[in-house]
């Protein structure tokens, strides 16, 4: 009902932004990993795809807002951009010419993403607080 839905909406955004922060942290942690968990190639940067949550195509817009609300993580995809090539003949993963394929992680991009996710998280916490304050006001009528 009403304002409770607004709380759920903000909650869905909080968890989506948390996923973004988790993935960014993973990218930064693996910025130098030349092997993935299954031992193939360098680590590839991951990115979160966000999608508006709703009842889907066909449902009326008002229904889509009533049924499922907020935002959801549609998936975590790999960044297809090419990996960095670094000349390091002593590295165990260097190829015949002495080049090592490093992850396509750019620290600046990750830091920017992190700040963006953190700000969006804060905005949604504020939204949640406003909703809570409004709800508390309504309860005052009963006093």
């Amino acid at each position: 009902m009403g304002l409770f839905d607004a709380l759920d909406t903000s909650g869905s955004a909080l968890s989506a932004e948390r996923v973004r922060m988790d993935v960014t942290a993973e990218n930064l942690a693996n910025a130098q990993s030349t092997r993935t968990a299954n031992g193939q190639g360098p680590y590839r940067r991951k990115e979160v795809v966000l999608q508006e949550a709703g009842a889907g195509v066909g449902a009326s817009f008002a229904d889509s807002l009533r049924v499922a609300r907020g935002v959801k993580v549609a998936g975590i995809v790999q960044d297809p951009s090419p990996s960095r090539r670094v000349y390091d003949p002593g590295h165990p993963d260097a190829d015949a010419k002495g080049y090592v394929s490093m992850p396509n992680v750019n620290t600046v991009t990750e830091m920017t993403d992190l700040i963006g996710a953190s700000r969006a998280y804060e905005a949604n916490v504020t939204a949640m607080q406003t909703t809570k304050a409004m709800f508390a006001r309504t309860l005052d009528i009963l006093k």
């Binding site: 009403g2 304002l3 839905d5 955004a13 508006e52 807002l65 935002v71 949604n124 909703t131 409004m134």
Partner: peptide, 19 residues
């Protein structure tokens, strides 16, 4: 009721700030 509906809409917008 109207203000509460508007609050829901704004919350939805803020939840999708990165969509």
């Amino acid at each position: 009721l109207g203000a509460s509906a508007r609050q829901q809409a704004i919350t939805q917008n803020l939840a999708n700030v990165d969509t």
